[in-house]
Amino acid sequence: MPVRNGTSVTRERILAAARPVVERFTVTKFGMEDVARAAGIARQTIYKHFTGRDDLLIAMFIQQLTEMREELSDIVEAEPSPEQLVAIFIEELKAAKDFPLFDAMLDPAVAPKMAEMVFSSDEMFAARNAAWFPILERYTASGVVDPGLDFARTVRWITYQEFWFLTHPTVLTPIDEERSTYVRDFIVKALLAR
């Protein structure tokens, strides 16, 4: 994003200040005043960049997705195969668990609101699409993934599956290897070319 009158710099400063604030107060109890104080700016300045708490949280999630994508670049760029799709899915789950707000987001009192917020955000899915469309295009071109897939719907479905695994980590199995088997046999299998 180009810097115009410090807009991008201020937005990044707010996001950087928000992480420790949200970690400290949790996603349900942090206030915009807390973030403004931590960023050293007026609360009104935050509202020039974010419409409210949910918008700020979505921006934090998108920032995390961008960082996560950079961490996974080696796996994403590997030769397309069904096993690589499993690896991408599993590594995204692991990276999501490392997100500082992960535990707070999955609190049973918070998770349904987080799901609503994530799945109703156009910005969130623009970021998810930007990450997954190139993967799906490569895997389609290589003959691994079904060429008839609607990419936007597929990314939404993948995101839902990952959210479910994250919010219910032991329902199917508490064992990582078995989780990979479920991903391979059901999720990735649904994407494969026939």
Score class of each variant (00 low, 15 high):
1 M>H: 11
2 P>R: 08
3 V>W: 01
8 S>E: 12
10 T>P: 01
11 R>A: 13
12 E>Q: 14
12 E>M: 11
19 R>T: 15
23 E>P: 04
26 T>L: 06
28 T>D: 13
28 T>A: 15
29 K>C: 07
30 F>N: 07
31 G>P: 00
37 R>D: 12
37 R>V: 10
41 I>V: 12
43 R>T: 14
49 H>R: 13
49 H>S: 10
53 R>Q: 13
58 I>N: 03
59 A>G: 08
61 F>M: 05
61 F>I: 10
62 I>V: 15
62 I>S: 10
64 Q>C: 05
65 L>E: 14
65 L>I: 13
65 L>S: 09
67 E>P: 03
69 R>F: 01
71 E>M: 10
74 D>N: 12
82 P>T: 00
84 Q>L: 02
88 I>N: 03
89 F>S: 08
96 A>Y: 13
98 D>A: 15
99 F>S: 08
100 P>N: 05
101 L>S: 05
102 F>P: 09
106 L>Q: 05
106 L>P: 00
108 P>N: 05
112 P>V: 04
113 K>S: 06
115 A>E: 09
118 V>S: 08
119 F>D: 04
119 F>A: 03
119 F>K: 04
124 M>R: 11
127 A>F: 04
128 R>H: 07
128 R>L: 15
135 I>F: 06
136 L>M: 13
137 E>F: 07
138 R>F: 00
141 A>Y: 09
142 S>M: 01
143 G>P: 03
145 V>Q: 01
151 F>D: 12
153 R>F: 09
154 T>A: 05
159 T>E: 07
162 E>I: 14
166 L>Y: 03
169 P>A: 02
171 V>F: 10
172 L>Y: 15
172 L>D: 10
174 P>F: 01
175 I>P: 00
181 T>G: 05
181 T>S: 04
190 A>Y: 00
191 L>D: 00
191 L>C: 02
191 L>P: 00
191 L>W: 01
